[in-house]
Write a protein that binds this DNA or RNA. Structure first.
Length: 421
RNA sequence: GUGGCCAUAGCUCAGCUGGUUAGAGUGCCUGACUGUGGAUCAGGAGGUCGAGGGUUCGAAUCCCUCUGGCCACCCCA
């Protein structure tokens, strides 16, 4: 009988990797909290309609990448492909925006998209993000971008570039859309198959195409379509980023794959990631999203960052949590010492020390070697002499120093050793 | 979703134009060493050769299908 395998595009997070992700998540929570963002958790699945209407029916995500299913009651549900619509739904349904504006929240959790797996692209992947809901201001956009930037600074990651663009408001977009259609329609026959379809469904996405790069170069840019208000809004964002000493590149071709963006959009790219998957995250302003979801109009701004891609950069740059050296291994010298050793381990734990009992029959020298290899900071030996005296011998594996003392004193000594790092 | 490359011990890999019992390094276990660690020496365990089917006297090796990974598209995280 063949063993059951892990589903395609999923990953096991084994003990060797788990601390790195936890460190990334903790760092983000800390940086977000320092900017006033509070934790929020929303369901891993939502009504399919939330994404059809929110993320956008014409987007690749909704068109071909969702894990959708019908539950036993006939309801159409979808494993969340992104976090923003669910978080906005939760915040507005609870009327948090009636209590204070903006509502600042941060989140982390698994997302699901059915795209062909590749390095840095999985069916199940983690995102972390923030949303600032209820205020339409350039200062908030700049703040959101700054939180992302400070997060990567806190991790110690270098080599990131911030790509920045504006899509203007709804009217600007309609004007720009018309300009693009006017430019592309005569060229229709020279467009790739996908782009011919985009011309009908979502002309802004024509700018994303790499195959038709030659045509994209000649396409009109958004600038002339922007109202003076939109231009003013965006220049305030760039001024604030400059004042915060956050470098950025203006990228007029940055469109983003989700329908709800308006005004400021951005992506964070990392040079070392595989060409196609070089974005570690992105975000922007989504002022029309609340209405599309059936709520009163409430503006918002936020970002989502890829945890796996961030971890990949961390690994490459040798970044991560300091290895934990806060454990001791308790060894019974011979088999008959095992019960006494177990008692000593119990007393150490009661004193707040992480104690692992090695009750195996292996030779003492091998068990000592094994404890050292597993990263234990110290070992505690319990043999016939110690058992008779109610004592234990503890040995610092880094210095080799060892000492026999009553168990209570050993606990104190170990606490001191572990506390000192 | 499209095209390509790949899959041999826990890990990294070798295995010739098909030819006896599938190898190495490392890791693991044991002994040298029955109360003292990452060393050394010796030994041992560990493989449905990704899965299924086919060709053949004979398949890890050739063919087909599937599964999974990677790469390029596509898209994004």
């Amino acid at each position: 009988m063949p063993a059951i395998t892990r589903p395609r595009g999923t990953n096991d997070l084994l003990p060797a990797e788990a601390p790195l992700r936890q460190w990334v998540l903790d760092t983000h929570a800390r940086v977000a909290a320092a900017h006033g963002y509070e934790p929020i958790d929303t369901p891993v699945f939502e009504a399919t309609e939330l994404y059809e209407r929110g993320t956008g029916a014409g987007t690749d995500v909704v068109e071909k990448e969702m894990f959708s299913f019908t539950d036993r009651g006939g309801r159409g549900l979808t494993l969340r492909p992104e976090g923003t619509p669910g978080v906005l739904r939760a915040v507005l349904a609870a009327h948090l925006d009636q209590e204070r504006r903006p509502v600042r929240v941060h989140y982390a959790g698994p997302m699901f998209r059915y795209a062909r797996p590749q390095a840095g692209r999985y069916h199940e992947f983690w995102q972390l993000g923030i949303e600032a809901i209820g205020e339409r201001s350039p200062a908030l956009d700049a703040e959101v971008i700054e939180v992302a930037w400070r997060f990567y600074e806190a991790l110690g990651i270098s080599g990131l570039s911030l790509q920045l663009n504006t899509l203007g408001d709804v009217d600007d977009r309609l004007r720009y859309r018309a300009a693009l259609v006017e430019y592309y329609t005569p060229l229709r026959n020279r467009l790739c198959e996908d782009c011919q379809r985009r011309l009908e469904v979502n002309p802004l996405r024509l700018l994303d195409c790499k195959r038709d790069a030659g045509l994209v170069a000649g396409a009109p840019q958004i600038g002339p379509s922007l109202s003076s208000e939109s231009q003013g809004f965006f220049s305030q964002v760039t001024d604030l980023l400059t004042a915060a000493a956050i470098p950025f590149s203006l990228n007029p071709r940055l469109v983003r794959g989700l329908d709800y963006y308006a005004h400021t959009t951005f992506e964070l790219w990392h040079e070392s990631l595989q060409g196609a998957q070089n974005a570690v995250g992105g975000g922007g302003r989504y002022d029309g999203l609340a209405e599309v979801l059936g709520f009163p109009p409430v503006p918002g701004s936020g970002y989502a960052l890829g945890v796996e891609r961030t971890m990949a950069v961390c690994r490459e740059q040798g970044l991560g949590p300091a290895p934990r050296r806060d454990r001791v291994v308790v060894l019974g010298v011979s088999r008959t010492d095992a019960p006494t050793a177990a008692g000593v381990a119990r007393r150490l734990r009661a004193a707040g020390i992480a104690a692992v009992l090695d009750a195996s029959d292996r030779r003492l020298d091998r068990r000592l070697a094994s404890a050292a290899r597993q990263g234990a900071r110290a070992v505690v030996l319990v043999g016939a002499e110690e058992a008779a005296a109610g004592s234990a011998t503890w040995k610092d594996l880094d210095t080799g120093r060892q000492e026999t003392a009553p168990v209570a004193e050993v606990a104190t000594g170990l606490r001191h050793l572990l506390g000192a790092g």
